[in-house]
Design a binder for these strands. Structure first.
Lengths: 338, 338
DNA sequence: ACTAATGTTGAAACCGTTTTCATTAGCACC
DNA sequence: GGTGCTAATGAAAACGGTTTCAACATTAGT
């Protein structure tokens, strides 16, 4: 048998208004009355119903997080950050992935969920022409994470790719004596890949080592495909002054695995670096030199922005930029020519 | 300006009852009227409000998933399965972790969330005395996943640990010539660890190779601690007929890493197996022999049970048992004495 | 003692749906 | 032409809260 605010009111011999006030504006009710009401609430185990509440308040205290996928370290770390922050701000977090064969439009619509959700943080990694249309279809606050940033209409938290690549490039070119870079990206519609590739082109051109098209590969972020490609190209690549730059750690791990199988030692005969600093980077041998992307932070900041906007609709779009950090490990040479 | 069912009714020149019927029981309304209403809905961009709806229907079509943690492959795979199934059954999934320093009681209470959630699938890996109390505090359907199973009051989906361990044991003892097993578990309050250890004791006793207490270690499921322990004990362990049996893949990877650093080759001088078959198992060298736990399935089945129960309260508790599968790779010897 | 301000409470409106129940119209049947 | 059905619709009552507004009691100020 469900217990409603009426039951509490009866038991405490007050009106429902008073019960409601005890719940929301304690200071407005006399101390002795309040005690009676609180006792009744306790004894009956009353919990205010979210629907009745939401109907009046027009908010649910639930926020959504939409990711391209839920697979792997990368995303779980974002979820952790988002979850922690949401909780600390008194919200619940609904997570959903845009993958799973459903087109993102219907997913977002479904999530928007007739007002059940107060706002959404979205990460879209593939650039498509209707991204903007989908986003503008939202009636509630939206925060964009990383990837795409169509216009400046939304709050967003992005990774400062340029800075990460620069740190990596100056390390490789300066300390590791790298003279040739092989770039392994994801699909060429992927926003991260685009940003990183562009940043590499700039960095290398500045160092008078332009990245030639033959050394740019578009794969799929997977271990296996990087492994296969590397096995095939290793004869060409293997050189102490060459570095394979992968757009994520998994592909870097794939290259290292292929090199290992072919008897090419890393980093002495070929250098490799990754991107993201996932858990994997520390687990393979040699440990991976990579760039730490603050995923936890990204999730947390996105939710922070989102909840802020929910509470204060007026503010103009804010943009948070998160700096990645170079993590030097063992997959490229320590000091110049070894 | 929000558009409600009243606006639609006005525009279509019908009553709100009719609009509602078009939404829920199309067949009850005349074709011509229906068309008018549908046109109005389309033109106004009307979406039924979830609070009004939930208030009447007493359900939200949202289900919760509570995990001990969100970190790592293991959990993301469960989330994926749960999400996919929830979606296909017309539900939305709220994910939350019981970690993050909050005691699980208040989390579950909060998630139960005044009825905002129709039910919860819970995975509790640590056995504590108040587990049962917490679970019985629920007023809505609960499905238990893996780990703890207090009484038979709830639906549950478990991993058939016994079967997984048996498969592994018969492979190791039969094909790999293993004569001594070192067991690396998680914390000894962990339900999985308890189940696996007990299963190993039975399997080994049956083979007249009882597991001695000195060869049982309780760690924390982490790469690092397994790595440190192995580095310390490797002198004792290193033997072609010894196999380190870790309760998850990460610890197995830690042992392999330590062995590699100490110049002990796996599997020739020491055999190692993991458990779970996470992504990591394929990425390290040698590739890990392990037991595939159907995590995606577990998430999916749990949600399936949950939604089933939500729709049909009456049924008596069901228990689904998922069989793990042996995955033979390169971290133990292929055929008897090599 | 009269007035104004303040503190405390309850009645009732409202939020946006679904659903029950009554009403009306159209139709077949005798 | 009345009677009994069915189909189509609308009015109104929930559902469980919050909030406005008015009422009343109390206190302070003069």
């Amino acid at each position: 048998m469900r217990v409603s605010i009426v039951d509490v009111a009866n038991r405490a011999e007050v009106s429902i208004s008073t019960v409601s006030r005890v719940l929301n504006r304690r200071d407005l009710v006399n101390a002795k009355t309040r005690e009676r009401v609180e006792a009744a609430i306790r004894e009956l185990g009353f919990r205010p119903n979210a629907f009745g509440r939401g109907l009046m308040l027009r908010r649910s205290e639930v926020v959504g997080l939409v990711l391209p996928d839920l697979h792997g370290d990368f995303y779980s770390e974002i979820i952790r950050g988002a979850d922690a922050k949401a909780r600390s701000m008194g919200y619940n977090l609904v997570v959903s992935s845009a993958a799973a064969g459903e087109d993102s439009h219907s997913l977002l619509e479904r999530l928007q969920n007739r007002g059940l959700i107060d706002g959404v943080a979205v990460m879209i990694s593939e650039v498509t022409e209707d991204t903007e249309r989908v986003l503008s279809g939202f009636r509630q606050p939206v925060v964009l994470m990383d990837g795409v940033s169509p216009g400046d209409q939304h709050d967003s938290v992005v990774i400062d790719q340029e800075r990460g690549v620069q740190a990596l490039a100056s390390h490789l070119l300066g300390k590791c004596g790298v003279r040739r870079v092989i770039f392994l990206g994801g699909c060429d519609t992927n926003a991260d890949t685009q940003a990183r590739l562009a940043a590499w082109r700039r960095s290398l051109t500045k160092a008078r080592l332009p990245l030639v098209d033959e050394d740019v590969y578009h794969l799929d972020y997977e271990f296996e495909s990087a492994c296969r490609l590397a096995a095939d190209r290793l004869d060409d690549w293997a050189d102490p002054d060459t570095c394979v730059v992968a757009a994520n750690d998994e592909m870097a791990a794939g290259v290292i695995s292929a090199a290992h199988a072919a008897g090419v030692t890393v980093p002495d005969e070929l250098q490799v670096v990754g991107f993201d600093d996932t858990r994997l980077a520390k687990l393979i041998r040699p440990k991976l030199t990579t760039v730490r992307v603050p995923m936890w932070q990204m999730g947390a900041r996105a939710i922070e922005l989102l909840c802020g906007r929910i509470q204060d609709e007026a503010k103009e779009p804010r943009r948070v930029s998160l700096p990645p950090a170079l993590v030097v490990r063992d997959s490229c040479r320590a000091n110049g020519v070894s």
